[in-house]
């Protein structure tokens, strides 16, 4: 996904003079050719994430469409107030693109984890949040985001699904069970493990790469009594929007995702998926227990 992000952004910089890129050292070497071609619109600020968002806000105030990029924990967690005030409060937009996700940098430990990024952005106003599950989705989503003027968060992951999915942000049924069976909503790169986990279970699986705005109408059209939400970041992040979507419909909700605890462990991203119950076996255990 990161490779596709770099290629797509470099092409956008070539094609659209409104596009600008602001970096805080992360990925700067990969963007060196683009910086050579567009020195005024590709700016590596050094390891200065607060400035990165401030500059993005300033660029947007002059009419440019800034893309700001870093690790999720630096692009969101560290600069929460800059996102709130330098973008939201100024009434301007930007495209914020992160790598690292919840624990892609597993060997670095908790300092480079950001399970709470989407939850933090969910406290702000009118952010579009994309969590692509495949590099092809990254390119589509990024090109569409740059063409808008809103505030968009594009959360890249190093754990892609096997296939690209939805064209837009609406829930897409990728496995249909019987009428009225539980609906499993899989967000972004958790789709592949979800599909592995449901073997033999009568459930419907719906996919989205866009948890904000959430496809409430799509969920209402699918939902039976039970809904299972599987997200690759903090468990329960989208419980609110599911509850709002189904506010007048009696339902049970199981929200799966990354736990809150700092596990103080390294290992691989796969190890962390297992420890958080997001590997196929862990997901299946949770599903079976909930649906029993």
């Amino acid at each position: 996904m990161r490779t596709r992000f770099i290629a797509t952004t470099s092409d956008l910089l070539d094609q659209d003079p409104r596009t600008a890129l602001v970096l805080a050292d992360i990925s700067s070497a990969s963007f060196a050719p683009a910086a050579t071609r567009h020195p005024d619109r590709v700016r590596n600020l050094g390891i200065r994430e607060q400035l990165m968002v401030g500059v993005a806000g300033g660029l947007a105030l002059t009419g440019l469409r800034p893309i700001a990029h870093s690790y999720a924990t630096f692009a969101v967690d560290r600069v929460y107030e800059q996102l709130k005030l330098d973008l939201d409060h100024q009434g301007v937009g930007a495209v914020l693109v992160s790598v690292g996700a919840s624990y892609d940098g597993s060997e670095y430990g908790y300092t480079h984890f950001s399970p709470g990024d989407v939850a933090l952005l969910d406290t702000l106003t009118d952010w579009t949040v994309h969590v692509p599950g495949h590099p092809d989705e990254v390119e589509r989503l990024l090109r569409a985001a740059v063409a808008r003027d809103d505030r968009t968060y594009l959360r890249l992951s190093a754990q892609p699904n096997h296939l690209p999915r939805a064209e837009d942000g609406r829930l897409q049924v990728v496995h249909r069970g019987s009428a009225g069976v539980p609906v499993v909503v899989a967000v972004g790169p958790v789709l592949s493990p979800v599909l592995h986990a449901i073997g033999g279970l009568d459930v419907t699986v719906a996919y989205t790469h866009t948890p904000r705005p959430f496809d409430a109408a799509g969920l209402r059209a699918l939902a039976g009594r039970d809904v299972v939400l599987v997200e690759p970041y903090l468990a329960g992040t989208s419980s609110r929007v599911v509850a709002e979507a189904l506010t007048d419909l009696p339902h049970r909700l199981l929200a799966l995702g990354v736990g809150r605890a700092d596990l103080r462990r390294y290992g691989s991203p796969g190890d962390h998926a297992k420890w958080h119950g997001l590997d196929p076996a862990g997901l299946r255990r949770s599903l079976v227990r909930f649906l029993r």
């Binding site: 400035l51 401030g54 300033g58």
Partner: peptide, 17 residues
């Protein structure tokens, strides 16, 4: 602590255009 970063961005944006 927010205005100077925004000002840097505005100056860069004007230059880029």
């Amino acid at each position: 602590g927010h205005g100077l970063g925004l000002a840097v961005g505005v100056a860069l944006g004007l230059r880029a255009q």
